[in-house]
Computed example of a mutant assay.
Amino acid sequence: MPDLTFDAIGTAWTITTDEPLSGQQRDDVADLVAGYDRTYSRFRRDSVIAPLAQEAGTVQLPPSAVPLLRLFDTLHRLTGGAVNPLVGHSLEKLGYDAAYSFSSSGPSAAPDWTLTAGWRQAEDGTQLSTTAPVTFDIGAAGKGQLVDLVFGLLRAAGHRNLTVDAGSDLRHAGERGLRVALEHPYDATRAIGVVPLRNRALCASAANRRAWGEGLHHIVDAGTGRPVEAVAATWVLAEDAMTADGLATALFFTDPDLLAEEFAFDYVRMFSDGRATYSDAMAGVLFS
């Protein structure tokens, strides 16, 4: 049975452990999730990154920003700019803005990540600087990182058999593995296969999630400002959820063989026409 369920950062969370969480551990999870939201949310006027949408400047981010921004640097390079943490600009133009207007003014490319922003590791965290107003959005990998942070907190507290599930992003530890259904992107009552998960992370991304109009959804090519069309859904197994989450996004834009040159992962990628490609280790998970 789940030990803790809650809603945060726009999704439902379920944490399952063998031993019940203490009251302090529950408070620590709540504080961690709330702090992450206060740092990175583009939907909050009081978040740490909010001032960057108004004017160029520098903000101080926590130490956890270092691996996150390193991942974005790599994915930006491997996808030719399609994965870009400044994609919030494009999402806003399409109507997925802080007011949830869902009123599109048309596609607009995001500012170039390497030309408009820069970061450096400081003694007390990470400094992110921009040369123009930008809308920072870490949706491509941020939820996965938060899963990892919650997972790490509870592992440090002594939980050895543990699953952290944030919507479509999971991380598992323990002797007893899980069997996770891959939800069909066009029919939530069906699955296209079942993946065994043990001591790894599984993250998914689909165009049907957070959709608000014909052809309008949250998976956007930052280089063009347009939602993707050719790929419908992706699933990635990796050692940690941040990597799996980022790669699940990158697979909408990039050949998996290119990503495999720098990352160790397994995947399933389903196209809009119903075709699917997958890595060798995932060959037996799909239904015929």
Rank of each mutant, 00 (worst) to 15 (best):
P256A: 03
A233L: 00
A99P: 10
S41K: 01
A211T: 14
H184W: 01
G80P: 06
A248L: 05
V134I: 15
P227Y: 05
L94R: 15
E92N: 15
S108R: 15
A188R: 11
Q25L: 10
D37S: 01
Q145I: 04
T126K: 06
Y96G: 03
L91R: 06
T11G: 00
G95K: 14
N199S: 07
L69G: 01
G167P: 05
Y186Q: 10
E19N: 15
G106L: 03
N84W: 08
D187C: 03
R45Y: 11
V150W: 03
G80K: 03
F72D: 01
S288L: 10
G174R: 03
G158H: 15
A53F: 11
A132R: 13
L258Q: 05
A283R: 12
P133D: 14
V180R: 00
N199D: 06
T243C: 00
R44N: 00
G23T: 04
D27M: 02
F72E: 02
L170M: 12
D112I: 09
V59W: 02
A8T: 07
P107Q: 12
F287E: 14
Y278L: 12
A244D: 06
G81Q: 08
A156T: 14
H218Q: 04
A98K: 13
P85Y: 04
Y36E: 01
A110D: 10
R155I: 12
T234G: 11
N84D: 11
R42N: 02
S103L: 15
T189S: 14
P107I: 12
F43H: 05
I49A: 02
V180D: 09
H159M: 09
E123K: 13
A122R: 07
P51C: 04
E229D: 11
T14G: 10
S279E: 04
V147F: 02
A99R: 13
A250P: 01
R209N: 09
R120H: 08
T254H: 03
P51L: 01
L216G: 05
L154P: 12
G215R: 05
S47A: 00
M270K: 05
Y96N: 10
I219Y: 02
D273K: 07
K143P: 06
H76D: 11
G174M: 06
T16N: 13
L182M: 11
A117N: 06
A248G: 11
